[in-house]
Write a protein that binds this DNA or RNA. Structure first.
Lengths: 285, 285
DNA sequence: TCCTTCCATACCCGCAGGGTATCGCTGCGT
DNA sequence: ACGCAGCGATACCCTGCGGGTATGGAAGGA
């Protein structure tokens, strides 16, 4: 009775996205009749109509919309499973950590050192990526990531808090707010804020930025300002200033990894990171 | 190249759990040779050895252990997909809400009323269940659940906070702590606490309980005491008393539903619940 | 009304998935 | 040391399902 198959979900996803059997079949590299049959079979198995066939175009039913979303989840989980298994079976095991350059709160060197001191530590590959870094985790391409709460969606991930920071407004020295000792979010009305790829849709649309150097450069050129965690202080250029944003929510640097992960190497890494974070807050207050 | 199929994952899961091809095949209702072949094929596709075959028994490799866990995730997601789709396609649409009797903080009647006032409100089925209620959500058997943070694992679920409560120690009038106006967790050392099915493995093992009436009855019989949210006050029997537990973490009643849910009926229900919760905290402090 | 468009039906074929029989290895008991 | 029992792999067969081509039929547009 558990007849569902991934192939059928792939087929249905294609049809549901194209709303056209012929085009969907072409996209799948097959012909239309067996595709029609497969969808009919799927509908029979589920006991539900997924598509309303008009002679001009097809439309998703309510159930079809549900299955489309669920299918994507299942297919993502399946390819993540394949990737994770392949990576776990590699002859030379490594730990892949995805970071944002400049987004490590200054803790990363200490964490890496602490991890390498653990017994059986693996080589750590650092992957630098902007925007949607958690996707690399969900896709099974990485073992862990440094993310920020509440900016990132942490659903389905386990996390270890590392460092909670207030946020600073970073701007050129010549900016109208540069003389202030503190600002609040209202002061930023109308300011162009950076647009990270795929995130932060709200507010003023500045140019899209892809790395920290580019961001600071654009700020220096007066194209935008940015609200960043206070650990950014150590990396500012001379022509930029930073002042606290009083009412910006504090941001927490977290180490995140896929839920239910079992790898001892990852466990050791989390342990090392937690130890470093604990020491840091213990010292710093 | 994306050859993975659910059937193969089912097969592999069986073998990985039995660590024995013959028994796994029997469990799957098939014979051993095609099962062996399917696993070999899976290994070839992934380019990874999943099982170390000894002549007496098989053992999981590291990669095999990863795939076992991932397979369970994928298979769970798949059957949840099927169930959600079937439920979405039903002729008489309903909203299934899973609750714990007595665990609604007294808000449920108001929430149900508010929801029924929404346009297009569906009939609400209440499902009462103890222990692991979030599983019903993950399995796609329910649309929403009333859960408690931090007691329940909310990974993969979206939530709406409804009510934060302090916790009370509930005990018979004759209990040694019954005269106190407050207690702390240390006072409970050695007390038999209830064991909810499947949860709360730590600490003293009392009898397992399955519903609130039974729990209160057992407390009255001096078989155990319990730490419960303060909204339990309205439902206590005369022979029980409750006093605040100073250092017990406050518990938050949350409405939870599967991430990425799209149903307008669910959205209306969440809206209604949020409105009721906001009004309650607005009035109560 | 006719033609186009698009999905369903009818029919065919090859292979993948499942079955039976058997082999080969290995560890254990005597 | 030998033999036996247990288990997984191999060899081989066959059926059914997943894919193909040809065509029907309904619906919308000119």
């Amino acid at each position: 009775m558990e007849g569902l198959e991934l192939r059928e979900l792939v087929y249905f996803t294609a049809v549901a996205e194209e709303l056209h059997f012929g085009r969907a079949a072409a996209r799948l590299g097959m012909t239309q009749p067996p595709l029609s049959r497969a969808i009919q079979q799927l509908e029979r198995r589920l006991g539900v109509t997924l598509l309303e066939r008009g002679s001009r175009r097809a439309a998703l039913t309510e159930a079809g919309a549900v299955l489309l979303r669920e299918s994507r989840t299942v297919l993502d989980a399946a390819s993540a499973a394949a990737r994770r298994t392949r990576r776990a079976g590699r002859a030379d095991p490594r730990l892949v950590l995805v970071i944002k350059p400049g987004g490590d709160g200054g803790l990363l060197p200490a964490i890496l050192d602490a991890y390498q001191a653990e017994p059986g530590a693996l080589p750590v590959d650092l992957v630098c990526s902007f925007g949607e870094r958690e996707i690399l985790l969900r896709e099974g391409r990485a073992d862990a990531a440094l993310l920020h709460r509440p900016r990132h969606d942490l659903g389905g991930l386990d996390t270890q808090d590392l460092l909670t920071e207030t946020q600073l407004l970073v701007m050129p020295r010549s900016h109208r707010l540069a003389g202030r000792t503190r600002v609040c979010l209202n002061d930023l009305a109308g300011e162009p804020l950076p647009r990270w790829p795929g995130a932060y849709e709200g507010g003023s649309h500045g140019p899209e930025v892809h790395d920290l150097g580019q961001l600071l450069h654009l700020i220096a050129l007066r194209r935008m300002v940015a609200v960043l965690p206070s650990s950014i202080r150590g990396q500012l250029r001379d022509d930029l200033v930073a002042v606290p944003v009083d009412d910006a929510e504090p941001t927490t640097l977290v180490l995140a990894w896929p839920e239910h992960a079992t790898s001892p190497a990852l466990a050791a890494f989390v342990r090392a990171a937690a130890a470093v974070a604990g020491k840091a807050t213990g010292h710093g207050g």
